[in-house]
Design a protein around this nucleic acid. Structure first.
Length: 512
RNA sequence: CGCGGGGUGGAGCAGCCUGGUAGCUCGCGAGGCUCAUAACCUCGAGGUCGCGGGUUCGAAUCCCGCCCCCGCAACCA
């Protein structure tokens, strides 16, 4: 058995969560659930990054304190993730002074002791209207588009993290190894992109702001005049959640686990470069895998408030009376891991109808009703061809899932559904009688049991509903975190204590 | 010459790393079945895999050049 630590990016709660947040959490949750199901010891962490000027400004605008804003908005995230049945073990908040801050401050001190932090003056173009430094791209003809004024050149003191020292090391870490450690980027088309960053050369990174320009954050240890900027604060959540460098360390989840960070392409550079560099200089090993997902468009267009095409996740849930599985299914099935994808209501409804309702739900129903008419008994015959197919199916499925090609995994499960629907028409069980009929139908039911197990990481509730209708004895414990898909369960006819079916019912109702 | 991503039948995508009969979902046409949620199955139409060149016995896949879309991932969480 192996240990796995899976994390997502921590979300910035200056506004309500959108589909992009959901994509990432569902992807990570599918992975976490899969590894649990195969028997790994899994710890899964998500959270919120609550500091910074954006939060400060959003709070000022509303006339509340940043903490009040954070407390209020964080509930939008935790509530949504509960409704989506994200199976995290810890939700970490960067404003948590007990869980998060102590580790961060130790990290800072260790980086300082290692000679990796240096106070320098930073010169930039500051717009007093925006209250922030502007980059060349922010400006139109050198003028702030929001305030129609030219920003002034301002100089301030920052602590810089001397990352440029690690350029070669990081390249080695990502391509070969650094001190025997390697950090793999998944999928490999993202690897190329990230490595290109290295070729551009690495610059040192600003790690702090004067307190006068950034107050809402973690104070720099032993320097009252400065507040930590996002990197040291936010990235550290991955180990502060494990209590590293405190008296309640759970270090086995880092040192003796496969560590996988699930993040979006926008923050790949920080996770691929700054984070491992920080870790090395505080004497903590680097993570193992960086799983980078793409962005979602909405109806083929970039999601933005001005376009008005931002999809509110709760609207999607509401369409299905709070059932999280349709959206979990859509995101898993339609978006290739790592690629950009699109959310379209039309596509979403069609997929629900065609795949979930017609292919899967209807198959379950037709099989169960036929069995019910024969008395509801299950009698799975020995069948070498079925046995081989089950073995091959699980092998392929496992390979897809293990390599994080989860879209292939769910599609394989659905491909099996198609095969079964076809086989029913060919074998016409309704024309048979007696034992012949029961054994044939039992084979279909048994195949559906396998489908249900394969769907379990993606659509847990649905997978359990299928197993319950099938009457599989383990059905009631399927959603528990210690439920494991055993070798026996993966065998065709391996569930010896399964005798009768349950009560058939409509798995997915039609859309109104 | 900023950096990336993409261009595959009507629509949306997979395949490309590790060359070898072009695959999936939706849509369309014609049959079939009647167990089932007006569902299901079969067959069919529809593609010079952006363009040009190269490597190869063989290229959607590898190499070179070009065209067209999209993103910003430059201290933006």
């Amino acid at each position: 058995m192996s240990r796995r630590y899976i994390t997502t990016a921590i979300d910035y709660p200056n506004a309500a969560p959108h589909m992009g947040h959901v994509l990432e959490k569902v992807l990570a949750d599918v992975c976490a659930r899969w590894f649990r199901l195969k028997g790994d010891d899994v710890r899964f962490q998500i959270g919120t990054d609550e500091h910074g000027t954006k939060m400060q400004r959003a709070a000022d605008k509303e006339g509340v304190t940043p903490q009040e804003l954070a407390d209020r908005n964080v509930e939008l995230f935790t509530g949504l993730y509960d409704r989506l049945q994200i199976s995290h073990d810890l939700f970490i908040r960067t404003t948590d002074q007990k869980v998060h801050w102590p580790t961060v401050q130790v990290i800072w001190k260790k980086l300082a002791d290692a000679g990796m932090l240096e106070k320098r003056s930073y010169k930039g173009l500051y717009c007093s209207g925006c209250e922030r430094f502007m980059t060349a791209r922010d400006l139109t003809d050198g003028i702030c588009p929001n305030h129609q004024v030219a920003p002034e050149e301002v100089e301030e003191e920052n602590y810089f993290f001397l990352m440029s020292k690690d350029t070669e090391n990081l390249k080695n870490l990502l391509t070969k190894e650094w001190d025997g450690e390697s950090y793999r980027i998944i999928p490999n088309n993202r690897e190329k992109e990230t490595l290109a960053l290295l070729d551009q050369g690495l610059e040192d990174v600003s790690f702090s702001r004067p307190k006068s320009s950034l107050d809402w954050g973690i104070p720099v240890p032993e320097d009252d005049e400065h507040t930590m900027y996002v990197w040291c604060d936010a990235l550290t959540n991955y180990i502060s959640g494990l209590g590293l460098f405190t008296d309640h360390e759970e270090r086995e989840w880092w040192d003796d686990a496969t560590v996988t960070h699930v993040i979006g392409k926008d923050i790949a550079r920080f996770h691929a470069l700054i984070w491992p560099s920080m870790l090395k200089h505080v004497g903590v090993r680097t993570p193992d895998e960086l799983l980078i997902h793409g962005f979602l468009t909405s109806e083929g267009q970039k999601m933005s408030k001005s376009t008005g095409n931002v999809v509110v996740p709760d609207d999607v849930l509401e369409k299905f009376d709070g059932n999280p599985d349709p959206i979990r299914f859509y995101l898993s099935h339609e978006i290739s891991v790592g690629s950009d994808g699109d959310f379209s209501w039309d596509r979403f409804e069609k997929l629900y109808d065609a795949r979930m309702r017609n292919a899967l739900g209807n198959l379950l129903n037709r099989v169960l009703i036929l069995i019910q008419k024969e008395g509801g008994k299950i009698a799975i015959p020995d069948s070498p061809s079925d046995t081989t197919q089950a073995e091959d199916g699980w092998k392929k499925f496992g390979e897809s899932m293990d390599s994080f090609e989860v879209h292939n995994g769910i599609q394989q499960a659905l491909a099996l559904v198609d095969v079964l629907n076809g086989a029913i028409d060919t074998t016409k069980p309704w024309t048979l009688e007696g034992e012949e009929k029961v054994t044939l139908l039992s084979r279909f039911a048994e195949s559906l049991r396998h489908v249900s197990l394969m769907l379990l990481p993606f659509v847990p509730q649905t997978a359990q509903a299928i197993a319950k209708q099938l009457g599989v004895p383990y059905a009631k414990s399927m959603l528990e975190k210690d439920f494991v898909i055993t070798e026996q369960m993966k065998e065709f006819g391996g569930q010896k204590d399964w005798q009768t079916i349950g009560e058939p019912s409509i798995l997915f109702p039609p859309l109104s």
